[in-house]
Write a protein that binds this DNA or RNA. Sequence first.
DNA 1: GTAGGGTTAG
Length: 625
Amino acid sequence: MRLPRVHLRLVSTAAVRLHPPPSAAIYHEAKDKKEWQLELEQHIARGQLAFARQVLDRIPAPDARAYNALIRAYSWRGPFHAATNVFAKMPTRDVVAWNAMLAGYAQHGMYEHAIAHLLDMQANDRLRPNASTLVSLLPLLAQREALPRGASVHAYCLRACLDQKEEQVLVGTALLDMYAKCKHLVYACRVFHGMAVRNEVTWNSLLSMYAKAGLINETMALFDEMAVKDTVSYGALLSGYVQNGKAEEAFIVFKKMQACNVEPDVATMVSLIPACSHLAALQHGRCSHGSVVVRGFASETSISNALIDMYAKCGRIDLSRQVFDKMAARDIVSWNTMIAGYGIHGLGKEATTLFLGMKNQGFAPDDVTFICLISACSHSGLVTEGKHWFNMMTQKHAIPPRMEHYICMVDLLARGGFLDEAYQFIQSMPLKADVRVWGALLGACRIHKNIDLGKQVSRMIQKLGPEGTGRFDEAAEIRVTQKVKGFKKSPGCSWIEINGSLHAFVGGDQSHPRAADIYQELDNILIDIKKLGYQADTSFVLQDLEEEEKEKALLYHSEKLAIAFGILSLGEDKAIFVTKNLRVCGDCHTAIKYMTLVRNRAIIVRDANRFHHFKNGQCSCGDFW
DNA sequence: GTAGGGTTAG
C-alpha cells in the first residue's frame, strides 16, 4: 500500500539569503573566495588536511561546500575529532553537511552517535533525511543487525517516496542489504522484487546473502543469471564458500575468476586466505602470500591479519609472528589473532606476554581479546591465570561477559580437572547456559572419565533440546540447510598436504589410489603398537560390534588413514601434519603417541580447536586420554 | 556525497 506523497521542503538558509547587487568590490571578494576554495580543495586532494584547515579559516564566510569537503576528508583520513570540530564551527548546516558527518560516524561504526546525530538533524535544523542520509545510515543498521530500526527506516522510505530512479536503486539496495545482514531473507527478497531498477550492486548483495546462508545452489543459480560479474560478485561467491567450510570450491572460484580476467582485490584475497587456514594447506597459503605481495597488498592490515591466522592454523606460529612483527599498523584484530594463534598451539605463556605487550602499547583489549586469552590459558592448562583474566575483564575493563566467555571458563575449569567447580560456575551464571556451555563440560567429563557427571550433563543437554534454529526460519519459502550444533555431527574428515596437493580421508575410506598400501601399513602399525602395550579403547565405538570389529573400526579412523599415508609419502626426517575437522578421538590420541615410537616420527594433528604435537610417545596437550 | 564481497574466539 502506498501512503500519500509528502513533499519535502528543504529549508537552506544559504539559499534564502538575499544577494546584494553585483559591484566591483564584491566581484573581487568573490574571486578571492573562489581561489581560496580551489586551494583548499587542492590541499585536500594532496592529503594536506592541516593546510586545508588553515585555508578554511582564512576564507571570508566560507560556503557549505568548503566545510563539507573538509568534514569528509577528516572522516576518511582522520583525525576524526577534527571533522566534528569543523562541523561544530559551521554557521549554517545544510543537509549535505549533516550527511557528511553522518557518513563519518557510520565509517567509524559509531552507532549511538549516528542515531543521536540523525535526531539532532531533524530537531535542530528541521531537515529531513534524504536518500544520501539513508544510504549512509542503513549499512550501520545492517552492521548492528538493528532490524526494528531498519524496518522503520524502510517505512520512512515508503512515506518519503524516494522513488526517482537513481535514488531508488541506491536506497533499495541499501535496504535489501540491511535486511540480508539482519538475516531477514523474506524481506530482502521482497525489496529485491519490488525494485524497478536494479544494478550489479543489488545483485551482488542478494548473491552474498544466499552464499552466507549456505544456500549454495541458489547462489550458483543467481550467479549464472547475472549479466555483469565483477570482482565483488566473484568475491561474494568465494567468501560464501569459505564461510560454509567449502574451501576447495573457493579455490575453484578463484581460478575461474583469474581465467575470466577478473582481477582479485584486497577483499578477495582476505576471503581466500582463510580458505588456506581451513585446509591447513601451507603450500596454498604460501602461494597466496606471494600473490598478495606481488599485487602490492602486503601492507594492508586486513591482509596481514588473515596471514597471521593462516600461518598459525597451518602450524607455523613462527611465520605468524614474523608477519605480525613486520606490520606497519596493527589493529585490535591483529593482536587478537596473534593471541588466538598462540592459544591453539598451547602457548599460553606467550599469549599472556603478548596480551601484556598489547596493553603496554596502549591498545584496549576488547571482548574477543579475552575469549582468545582465556581459551589460550585453557589449552595450556593455566587454570589460575585464566580465572584471573576473567576477573580482570569484568572488574577492571568493565566488559560484560557473553555466553562465549562462559564457554571458555567452563572449558578452562573442566578441562583442568575442576569438574565440580565448572558445574557450580554454570549454576551461578547470570545467563541461562546453552548447549555449548554444557557441551564444554560434557567433553571434559569424557576426558576425565567422570561417568556420573557426564550422564547428568547429557540429560541436561537432552532437556534443552536442539538449539532454536534462528531467524532464518522466517524465510519459509526458502530452504535453509542448518546444522544444529551438537546434535547432527558432520562426518569426521582428515586431510594432509603432500607436495602442495591435498589428500582427504573419511573413516574407512577406500577411495584413495593408494588405499591398499595405506590399510596394509595400518595393519602393520597395529601389530607393532600392541607390542608396546597399546590397547584399543573401544568405548569410543558407538556401534554394536564384536570387539575385534570395534578395534578395526577405530583403526580406520580418518586421522589414522591420513597419518599412514603421510608415513608412506614423506621421508623419516619430515614431520607429519594432519588436519581434522572434528576433535581427534581419544583412542586415536593414544594410538598416535605409540605411532611416534614405532615409526620414529613427529606427528602434528590440528583438530577442531587446537594443535597436538606428538613426539617420542607423548603429546603436547595436557589431556589425559 | 552514494549502496555490494573482508580478517579475530568457541
